[in-house]
Each structure stands twice: as structure tokens, then as C-alpha cells.
Design a protein around this nucleic acid. Structure first.
Lengths: 200, 200
DNA sequence: AAGCTCATTGACTGACGGGTCAATCCGCCG
DNA sequence: CGGCGGATTGACCCGTCAGTCAATGAGCTT
């Protein structure tokens, strides 16, 4: 009667969730592994029972979430809707991720995505996958005449993703006001800027 | 006959220049202060003679260069030219800074600007000053009817600066091809995307 | 009930690197 | 010449963790 060993509580999950809070609060480099253990209400050594290293905890957090993002982009691209709507959906997904779990997104953005030197190095591939998927959306739109072809899709992606990341960073560091309304406005404004431009 | 004490060589400058190379090569956190001293051909302790801490070396590098950028933006804004040209000038200045001294810009972008958690925290104010100056450019253009007012200037800035930073990051981490021609294209494309939009 | 497996504990170790400081060097001035 | 002050040196100190490991305990299997 194969009773799942992990029936009562999944300590691994508890550790990961605690790590999100600790990384968000203190930063990956400044925090100690013992902080994670304490936050999780678990012994120090248990972290090393489930993870090979402190780095691997962050890796796991990032990969778990980033794969969800990649799937969401792929799924969006599969729809038969205007390219602009696809971009709105992608920006919307990222912003909703932030609204739903700000700590996790903060960690991913601040400690991985924006820290390509320290950590991203390992994950540049994964991050590049997202760029590539979005580039696909843009390129198809250009071929279909929805977007003008004047601007290389590589630049379009940088502008689009750069705008999103910058807005999230603005929220994270208190440079932009945050509220449910602001989140909705951001989705619309980002896409409108990238697709429609600032020009009168 | 006040002979300048520092006549022969300015060791302080030598240390700063060496630090740029070391930070660019190994990253601020991974490198040791002794690496900087070795690169500068100077004794370990001399770094602490001129700087209070390892952090202060990076601080100095950042502030020196960022103030030049702020001045450049202010100077650009003073000109009587179309807002789009101002943005081109600003993007151009940043990209030229990168072309002129890639190591220094790499350090500033990767270790300060994009590392707002670790370091930027101290410099969020300075970074915000740049946003604010650019926002001024956009807002004036909106009031003059050059740019449409539909998009709040705060978002416009995020999109503009985000696009630039993302392109630089792409170069730094080898996600975008680099060449003199690419630099020129980037200036044009970034501004054209932000001002004209992707839409057909 | 005995013994096995595996989660769990937390004290301990060892490396690493930032920062200190006492000593030395050197140009200048009286 | 003698001595002052600032530049320069680099060995050393010392705190800080990441990661280890031997011991404990809880439940399952036979």
C-alpha cells in the first residue's frame, strides 16, 4: 500500500517557500543558509538534505517559475489573435505573476534575471529562450504585415522585455507607485508604447 | 614653487582603472581586493590608503561616470531640437560611452544599475535622477504636442531606458552581435521603436 | 520486536577574504 | 644633516558563513 513518504508535510516545499521570503527580504548574497532554515522552522542541515548548495535553492526557484513563463508564452503564441494581443497577454502574464507572488518575482528579477553576472550566467540560456519565443511572435507579425519590418525583431524584443523588466524593477524598488490599478495600466501602457510609439 | 605632490603618477587613478578591468573580468563580488592591487601593480594596503573600502572603489567609479551622464542629459535637454532628436542624443551618448570604454560601462550596468539590490540601493537616488531628467524631456514634448499624452511620462521613461539597458546587456552577455555598425543601428532602432512603435 | 531506511538535527570545521597596522621608504624643508 | 609627513608595503587578524557529519528518531517491513 505505497503510502507516500511525504504524506504530512513536504519539507522541501516549505524550505523553498521560506527561501523566497528570505531572499526577497535580505537578498541572496546577504542572507545566510541558517536564515532560510529558521524561516522554514527546520534544522540547518535539512536544507542540505534537499539541496546540494545554497545556489541550488535559488536555481530551483528560478527554473520552476521560468518554465511556467516559457509555457505561457508558447501557449499564447499558439492562439490565433493579433500580435499586439499576444504581447499584451505576455506582459499581462508577467505582471500577474508579480501581483500574485511579488516576493518570488522580486527574487527572480533581482537575483537572477538582473544579476546575469553572478547567477544569470548559468541561466542565460533559459532567459534567451524567452527572448527567442517573443522574437518569434514579432517576426511572424512582421511577415504577416501586422508589424513593420523596419525594426529587427531582436531589437523589438529588447525594447519590449526591457520595458517590462524596468517597470517591475520600478515597483520593486519603489520608484513607481503600486496598486491594482497601476498593474492594469502598466499592461496597457507598455504594449501601447511598444506597438504604437510615443510620437503624436 | 608649489610642485604638485602627485607629479609622477596618480596611483589613485591607476587603482581605479585597474579596478574597472578586474570588476569587468571577474565581477565585483567574485574578485578580491588583492586582485585589484595586483592588476594595478601596487601593494594591497594602498587600496585602503585611497579608499575606505572595496565598496567605495565601485562607488567612485559609478558616481564619476554617472555624473557625466547626467550632465550630458541636461545639456541635451537644453538644446532647441525635436524631442525625438533629444532621445536619440541620449541613447547615442550611452551607447558611445559603451563603445568608448566597454569595461567601465559593463561594470556600471552589471554591478550597479542592474544590481539595485546589492549596490544600487545606495545609488537609487542617482539613478532616479536620470529617469527624472528623461521624464522631463518626454513631458515637455507631450505638452508641446510632439508626443501624445496618452502614455504617462513615467512609463515612457521606463520603456526608453529599459530598451537601452537591455540592448547593452545583450551586448555584454553576448546575446546580441557587436560591431560599430550594430552600435549605430541600435541608436536608430531604439528611438524609432519607442517613438514610432512596432505597429504597421 | 528487531532491524532497516531515511528524514531530521545542529554543533563543528575550514576556507576565504575584507580590513588593519606597524614598519619602511622617500622627498622636502629648515 | 636631521627630522617631519605622507606614500607605500604586505603579513596578519578575525569574523563570517557554506558545507559536513555523526547522532537521533520515526515509521515501515518482515
Amino acid at each position: 500500500m505505497a503510502v507516500p513518504r511525504q504524506a504530512p508535510v513536504d519539507k522541501r516545499r516549505i524550505i523553498l517557500d521560506a527561501a523566497v521570503r528570505v531572499f526577497a527580504r535580505e537578498g541572496f548574497h546577504s542572507c545566510r543558509v541558517s536564515d532560510i532554515a529558521n524561516e522554514a522552522g527546520v534544522a540547518y542541515g535539512l536544507v542540505y538534505h534537499y539541496f546540494k548548495s545554497k545556489d541550488q535553492v535559488l536555481d530551483t526557484l528560478f527554473l520552476e517559475r521560468w518554465d511556467v513563463l516559457l509555457d505561457a508564452i508558447r501557449e499564447t503564441d499558439r492562439q490565433r489573435i493579433p500580435a499586439e494581443d499576444k504581447l499584451t497577454a505576455i506582459a499581462g502574464f508577467i505582471i500577474e505573476s508579480y501581483r500574485h507572488d511579488p516576493d518570488l518575482m522580486k527574487v527572480i528579477i533581482v537575483e537572477v534575471t538582473r544579476a546575469a553576472n553572478t547567477f544569470g550566467a548559468t541561466h542565460i540560456g533559459k532567459i534567451g529562450e524567452a527572448y527567442e519565443l517573443i522574437r518569434g511572435v514579432v517576426e511572424k507579425a512582421q511577415n504577416a504585415g501586422e508589424f513593420r519590418s523596419e525594426i529587427p525583431s531582436e531589437f523589438a524584443v529588447m525594447a519590449f522585455y526591457g520595458a517590462i523588466e524596468q517597470v517591475l524593477t520600478g515597483w520593486i524598488f519603489g520608484l513607481l507607485p503600486e496598486s491594482d490599478e497601476e498593474y492594469e495600466l502598466a499592461k496597457a501602457h507598455i504594449v501601447r508604447t511598444i506597438c504604437g510609439g510615443l510620437g503624436a
